[in-house]
């Protein structure tokens, strides 16, 4: 299942070996192969001698990266049409005429009609709202919950950390689609909230692991030790010194995960447990279209294409952000 996977090359083997259990993770540290990269910290100075932050460096890289520009424009477009879908679609996605069911394209209805006689173009445009909402809101939820819990575990270590590591192991053991089927099959609501809630519930351990590893690395840096020696309180060290320097890997993984969450929502809707029919979602439309695929493939291809482009845009954005934030590639 795609959902647990965005830690491909993103985080190095720190996160990968963590997938085993505590034992493998300690080992990676001993070997000195991973967790060595310090995400952040002022490195390199500009021509004027003014130190540049990781963020301004990354932004400079991103602006020149065509992948970032293309994916950014696609995402901007998606966000705009999900806020104001009527900008480019003036019909009602729920206004359907059974007499026109499965008909092909015609003037005013470029994508044709679906099995219920609804306009496929309008439904595809309105479907963006669901996908963007699920992707953005679940990523925010997952990052906040996972970032805070993982960060605290990494900072304080000890028993808290051990308990958190075991809890993340438990959540990793549950296949995502399966958990979704069990968890969401009782929910009758046709809003996006149950799906978002489920994704946050099963998605946070992944971010928690990344945040934990990142905080442990940053915690050992000299400037943190110096702050401690100067008598800084725990909260000051966390907020002023550790969080800004440990957040880069979390942002990278969260951006890539956003794409996979959109894909997960569509998969769950396809299986009939994600969003439920009065809601407009690409997953629902693809599921409905799969029955008529022999006679009316256009019903499948448009929502599926929109879904693929959306997920692709977010994954490409995540790739570009990773390239910009990873000092190893400089």
């Amino acid at each position: 299942m795609p959902e647990q996977k965005p830690w491909d090359e993103t985080t190095g083997s720190g996160a990968i070996s963590g997938a085993g259990a505590g034992g493998a993770m300690d080992l990676a540290v001993d070997e000195g192969t991973t967790l060595e990269k310090t995400p952040g910290g002022p490195e390199g100075t500009g021509p004027a001698g003014k130190p540049r932050s990781l963020w301004s460096d990354a932004w400079r890289d991103l602006r020149r990266n065509p992948v970032f520009i293309v994916s950014g424009l696609i995402i901007l477009f998606l966000v705009v049409i999900s806020i104001w879908p009527s900008l480019i679609a003036d019909q009602d996605p729920l206004n359907c005429d059974l007499a026109k069911a499965q008909e092909g394209s015609r003037p005013g209805h470029p994508f044709g009609f679906d099995g219920q006689g609804c306009d496929v173009y309008t439904r595809t445009v309105y479907g963006a709202r669901t996908s963007v909402a699920v992707g953005v809101l679940s990523t925010l939820g997952v990052s906040l919950l996972g970032g805070v819990l993982g960060g605290l575990a990494g900072f304080f270590g000890g028993g808290w950390d051990a308990v958190l590591s075991r809890i993340t192991d438990i959540f990793f053991g549950i296949p995502v689609v399966l958990g979704g089927l069990v968890f969401l099959s009782v929910v009758a609501s046709s809003t996006v909230w149950p799906v978002i809630g489920f994704i946050v519930l099963l998605g946070w351990p992944q971010i928690a692991r990344i945040a934990r590893g990142s905080v442990i690395t940053v915690k050992q840096n000299d400037y943190v030790q110096a702050a401690r020696a100067l008598g800084a309180s725990n909260s000051r060290m966390m907020l002023r010194h550790i969080a800004p320097n440990a957040i880069a890997p979390v942002i990278v993984v969260a951006t890539i995960a956003l794409g996979t969450f959109i894909s997960l929502e569509a998969t769950l809707s396809y299986l009939g447990v994600g969003l439920k029919p009065p809601a407009v979602s690409w997953g629902i439309d693809i599921s409905a279209a799969s029955q008529y695929v022999r006679n009316a493939p256009h019903m499948l291809l448009w929502p599926a294409g929109a879904l693929a482009v959306t997920v692709l845009a977010f994954i490409m954005l995540g790739d570009a952000v990773r390239d910009a934030l990873d000092p190893k590639l400089r």
Partner: peptide, 22 residues
Amino acid sequence: TLVVIAVPTFVTGLLLQLLLGV
């Protein structure tokens, strides 16, 4: 690989079933 990752499994499956099977 990016395209394969971006297209959800159920879409890949349905398309392959449509093309190769039907």
